[in-house]
Each structure stands twice: as structure tokens, then as C-alpha cells.
Nucleic acid binder design. Structure first.
Lengths: 206, 206
DNA sequence: CTGTGTGAAGGCTTTCACAGCC
DNA sequence: GGCTGTGAAAGCCTTCACACAG
């Protein structure tokens, strides 16, 4: 009922809160105030409280939030209760590094297969997952009903590859190529553009 | 005079426009309408025009924008006219991949040195830049007057390492560690959190 | 007295609508 | 006629102020 009314930015911050809660849990803290949690997440306390009200009331007045309970609620809202399979397309330098990046598995994502135009060149290194030739991508996506893809191919072919992925059934793309993908309305794209992040930083220290 | 009033989000989009213009230039297009450029950058035409008015008038009514001229103006505003030296701290999988990533140099950033707690383990591979032990970081930052750092150390030590960098004179950090860094007001941080981006995508395809 | 929940106010961005110029 | 430049309106998000609960 409430899902569609949660603002995009709030959803994003929920992940930050969740992260911070995991750290608190690891430190065996079991209650936290909005002030403390907000600081850990880099936001203002009122914003944290407002964000939480979008999907319920979880705190105890005068006390704060129960770490375990709030954590569970966030998992629920974010839909990260079950593992989500992901493919990686483009096993160059960046793609290979991401395959070895432990952060995805830690947050509940499993990279089940990787694809590259030149599958053989990468197979030799141990990437922990099989690298298939690009031609296989549609077949695998369809068969395993994969919905999410990490796209680390060169910008020149990114749109074309994205089109194929979408045709095969991919609904969400984490795009590292430095172009804006044109996609249908039902497909979500998040862009990670490292050069732009640097450029942006450099502006603010001029 | 105008720099401080340009909204943060506008600055970010200026980089997108710049990118799109480079592609147009490569294709020898020399005039572009706000509609076409906006599409390439993934925004609405009115937004593009509004963004540009923050620092001047560059178009010709009835015609559009001169690609080369607008491109030059953006370089000016973004302060990317001269090369900006950057250091990379933490040469693990992700850090090493970033060292080999051609996108930084292409956009005017030179990674001049890398640092790692275990400097020797990485030196063997050809990363195109020297990997120094972590203890050297303050010295290098001070001597070379480096202002920007890419932080790819584990989350557990990220805050501590960031403190050292800032003490040495770093003013901007591109942070890949999955924590929110607490920094003084004069320091800028941009966070890139790959797991959160994936989590965010997964929410929207539930 | 501490700390949450929330309507209302405020501020920031985006979008509209159209005047102005080529 | 086509397309930019821009004040005004709308929309969205954040912050405030304070009621309320433990």
C-alpha cells in the first residue's frame, strides 16, 4: 500500500540506515536514538525520523529505536529478504575487479554469471564465476530469469548491449559506461560514473 | 561572481552535458538544440536551458548551441582546464582496477601515486603508477600539494585513513568505503557505494 | 526530562508558459 | 517557424516546532 509513495531519496537513505544498523548490531548495541543513527548515516535526525514514518512507527519515545527490529523492518521494505541473482556484463579491468569485490555478496547479491565479448581471455584468471561469451547472455537471462545486470562494457557498445539485455528480460541495470542509456519506462538504470564524480569534486575545491 | 550560486545538482549535470558534447564533437556535429543535447544527457530540455542560464547565455535562438563553444564554456566553469593530480589510497582489487581504468585520464585526472598498507604485494603487477607504503602518504600529499584522493581501503580503517589524508591537506575525497566519513566543513566527500546502488535498483523492480 | 512522530513552514529544483530573437 | 532565455508556478524534499509518550 505504501510502497509507491516513498520518495526516491528516502529509499536511498534507507540503505544507509540499514548499513549503519548492521554496524551497531556487530557492536552489540541494541538501542539507538535518531540522533546517533542519523549521524552514522550522514543525515539530520529529523530527516531520519521523517523517512521512517513513510512506512510506520518503530521507535519508543524517550528511548530510541531497537536496532534488531528496525533492521528487520528495513530489510522488509527494501526487499532484500531473499538473495537477488545478478549478472555482470563486460569483464574488463573494472568488471573483473567487481567480480572479486566482496561487498555485493555481503549485501545479499550473488553474481551468478559474467559475460565478455572475448570470453576466453578472462577465463584463465580465477574470478570465482564463469565468464561466458556475449552471445550466451540472452539465453542465460531468460533461463535463469535474471532481472539485474551490472554493465561494465565500453561506452561505445553500452547502448547496444543494454538493448539486448532488456530484450532478454533485464529490468534493472547498474551502468558504469559513461553514457546515458535510453531505456523503456519499466527499466531502471542507476549510473555510476567515476570520472564525473571526480570532476564534481574538483569543482568544489576550486 | 556566479560560482557559489550554481546548485549542486546543476554542477553535476554540467558534467553530463560536457560528456555528451564531446561525443557530438567526435561525430563532427557543430550545432545542437537543447532538445537533442538534453536527450543525450538524460534530462528535459528546459532543465538544460535553465542550467546553462546560471552562468550565461550560449545559444542562438532558432538554431541551438555551438558544440565547440559551449564545450569550452563548460570546461571553464567546471575548472577542468588544467590537469588535477589525484592519489589513490588502498590498492586492493577495486583500487588496482581503478588504477588501470582509462576513464580518469581521459577526463583530465592523473593518478600520480598509490598507497597501500602492504605496498610490496602490489608493486609486482604493472599498475602504471608506483605503490608506496601507507606511511608515505602524508609526505607525498604535502610535498606535491595534492588536493584530491580516491579512497578504496576497507571500511574498518576508512575513517582513520581519511583523517590522516585531511590532516595532510586533502580537500576532496572520492570514497568507496561503505561508511559515511565524518569530515570538517571545508572537505568535500563524494560516496560511491556499489552495494547500495544495487540494493536501490532491486527495490524498484520488486 | 528524553526522544519520537508529524503537521506546517520553508527552501530548493523542476517544469511551465511564453516573450524574444534568429 | 524554430528554438532559446526566463519569470512565475508547481512540485518535491527538508527542516522546524511542538505535541505526545515513556
Amino acid at each position: 500500500m505504501s510502497k509507491l509513495v516513498i520518495p526516491r531519496k528516502t529509499v536511498y537513505r534507507l540503505s544507509l540506515y540499514y548499513r549503519a544498523l548492521q554496524r551497531l548490531k556487530a557492536n552489540e548495541v541494541d538501542t539507538v536514538s535518531s540522533a546517533a543513527l542519523a549521524k552514522a548515516a550522514g543525515v539530520k535526525p529529523t530527516q531520519l525520523r521523517k523517512d521512517l514514518t513513510y512506512f510506520g512507527q518503530f521507535g519508543t519515545r524517550g528511548l530510541g529505536y531497537n536496532v534488531a527490529a528496525l533492521s528487520a523492518q528495513l530489510t522488509e521494505v527494501l526487499g532484500t529478504t531473499h538473495l537477488q541473482p545478478v549478472i555482470l556484463v563486460g569483464a574488463g579491468h573494472l568488471g573483473s575487479a567487481l567480480l572479486r569485490y566482496p561487498g555485493f555478496a555481503k549485501e545479499g547479491f550473488e553474481v551468478v554469471a559474467a559475460f565478455d565479448a572475448d570470453a576466453t581471455r578472462k577465463r584463465s584468471r580465477d574470478l570465482g564465476v564463469r565468464v561466458y561469451p556475449m552471445e550466451k547472455v540472452e539465453e542465460v537471462v531468460r533461463k535463469k530469469r535474471i532481472k539485474m545486470a551490472i554493465l561494465t562494457v565500453p561506452g561505445t557498445v553500452a547502448q547496444e548491449v543494454a538493448n539486448n539485455l532488456i530484450a532478454a528480460g533485464i529490468l534493472a541495470v547498474l551502468n558504469f559506461a559513461p553514457i546515458i542509456l535510453q531505456v523503456p519506462d519499466n527499466v531502471v538504470v542507476n549510473n555510476v560514473d567515476l570520472a564525473i564524480e571526480l570532476e564534481n569534486l574538483s569543482y568544489f575545491i576550486q
